[in-house]
Amino acid sequence: MITAPFEYARPGSVDETQSLLNKYGSDAKVIAGGQSLIPLMRLRLSQPTALIDIQGIPGLNEVRRDNGSVEIGALVRHVDIQRNAMLRESLPILVEMSNDVGDNQVRNLGTIGGVIAHGDAAGDYNAAALMLDAEIITNKRRHQARDFYRDIFTTALEHDEVVTAVRFPVSTGRFAYTKFRRRLYDWAIAGVAVQETGSSWRVGYVNLATTPRRGSAVEAALAGGASAADAAAQSGSDIDPTSDVRATAEYKRHLTQVLTVRTLQKATMAA
């Protein structure tokens, strides 16, 4: 439970971060809250040669709303999202998700930029970014969320690229998020997010494939006037779960259908 040796740098700007990443090469890792990276390092499953700690960079912890979008800085922590009144108005589904991330310690330290850069299918915000067509802003370019998540823990980020912000469309329609867990602080066995956008529904799936997934087939069925149950029956083509120590793949497929119906019901009943 002790990390392998590594070098540590604390840059004061994004430019400095990029030059440090270039200096240390592809075995260096950017660290913010460390809530995913440090556990992996303690198990020596990840052994970066250097940690570039971006927590001292000014300006990355702001939340702004303009022109129908909200931009959330990479260093904004889960607890900041939980407590942000503007987000509660403009992007309530993200606030709902933030309430259910890990425990207090994780929420006090973990950042949205970390969740996005880690690309974990179990990271709740990744499904939100995908389903809401968010934009991931880095020091080098802007990624569309739909092109960002490539494979298990693999994103479109290059080794000298660092996430600086995430830009979501303001989403004030009806919404709900269901995170099915056996234990309060766990990742989702299955997570289902729904958001009404204009006259259509967006659906996102958490931890049901190697990457976050959008419920495209379910969305299409709903758009075509299907009932919640009939639409949920389409979820099988949107996900690709595997069996693990928590549950079998077959169960997760079934659970996804059940939760999709319930989450849609929750969203429509709450309105």
Binding site: R246, A247, T248, Y251, H254, L255
Partner: peptide, 8 residues
């Protein structure tokens, strides 16, 4: 009594 087993 895991949920997936009970469901099965």
């Amino acid at each position: 009594a895991r949920p997936d087993r009970l469901w099965s």
